[in-house]
Amino acid sequence: MIVEESQTVTLVGAGSATKAEIDRCLALGPTLVAADGGAAHCLAADHLPTAVIGDMDSLPADMRAHIPADRVHPVGEQDSTDFDKALRNISAALVLGVGFTGARLDHQLACYNVLVRQPWQRCILLSDTDIAFLAPPRLQLSLQAGTRVSLFPLGLVEGVSDGLKWPIGGLTFTPDGRIGTSNEALGDIDVTVTGPKMLVILPQAELENVAAALSAQPGGWPAP
């Protein structure tokens, strides 16, 4: 592992990211890591990343010159995205990803693919409107009644729920079949899923709430 932390880590990508969003994540995860060109966002926000991980094809040379050489960790293979390269080289209780949405839809979709392929990593992706994360085996959250709770399958998955307006028990979800977007919380929710295939999407206002819950709840998808 390039970065090993017992607490939360903030990971910044080269997509859309504001200083306010980076600072918000840093308040929860003070260790700052950049995925390749995400280092430019870090420097623009007056933060020096602890590590920069990626193939280094999107970090301008003048920006790279501001980062100590021992903090730059090139990963040269081209079969994965910079988000993939960075996430698999971080060991942390939770990773908060900012800068992985907004700029290009294909990059955003690729990030969701990585969440499914690295299900042992607890990671929340923040956008200007939403947060998205892979549902753990059991998810318990305290939410206000009426909060939007969207469940989007990235593979075949089933589950049961308590506290959702439309329960999911007895349903089979697939990307090309039934999906579970625009559900609502009645209050506290308790959702259990059969496998690491369900993306949970909530309003971005819930970032701190979800980060605290995922950090505190034991049990996750096993590492290989």
Rank of each mutant, 00 (worst) to 15 (best):
Q140W: 03
Q121V: 12
T129R: 15
I53L: 12
H41G: 01
L151F: 08
E158R: 15
S58C: 01
S16G: 10
D70R: 03
V33W: 05
V193R: 10
I189A: 10
P218Y: 03
G15P: 06
V193D: 14
L87R: 02
V149H: 08
T18D: 02
G177E: 11
G76M: 11
M198N: 08
L199F: 01
D23P: 07
L214I: 07
P60D: 14
D55S: 05
E4S: 14
A93I: 00
A145C: 13
R71N: 04
D23R: 07
D57Q: 10
F152R: 01
R148S: 15
Q7I: 09
C42G: 01
T18V: 07
A39D: 12
R148L: 11
D188G: 10
T81K: 01
D62M: 04
T31N: 03
P218E: 10
E5T: 10
L199S: 02
K85F: 01
I53M: 12
R122G: 06
E208S: 12
A132Q: 13
A17H: 03
L202T: 08
A205F: 14
V98H: 05
Q108G: 15
A211E: 08
E158Q: 15
G38W: 03
D79V: 02
A145Q: 14
Q78A: 08
V72G: 11
C111G: 15
L87T: 08
H107Q: 15
D36C: 05
L207Y: 00
K165G: 01
A92W: 07
L156D: 15
D36Y: 04
Q78V: 03
V193L: 14
L87E: 01
T129N: 14
D70V: 06
P222Q: 00
S182M: 04
V210F: 00
V200C: 04
N89A: 12
I67A: 06
P175Y: 01
L59P: 08
L43I: 00
L87G: 06
P218C: 05
P196V: 04
L134V: 07
G15V: 06
Q7M: 10
R122V: 08
V75P: 07
P30Q: 11
V116K: 12
P49C: 01
E184G: 08
P137Q: 09
Q118Y: 12
A135D: 05
M56S: 05
T8A: 13
F100M: 04
T172I: 14
K19I: 09
A205W: 07
A44V: 06
D84K: 01
G13E: 11
W221L: 03
D106C: 11
P136Y: 07
T81C: 02
F100D: 06
L134I: 05
L214S: 04
E158D: 14
F83G: 13
L126E: 05
F100V: 05
L126Q: 05
R178N: 09
G220L: 00
E4A: 15
D70T: 09
D79E: 12
Q118W: 08
S80C: 03
S6V: 06
R117F: 11
T194V: 12
L48P: 04
A213L: 04
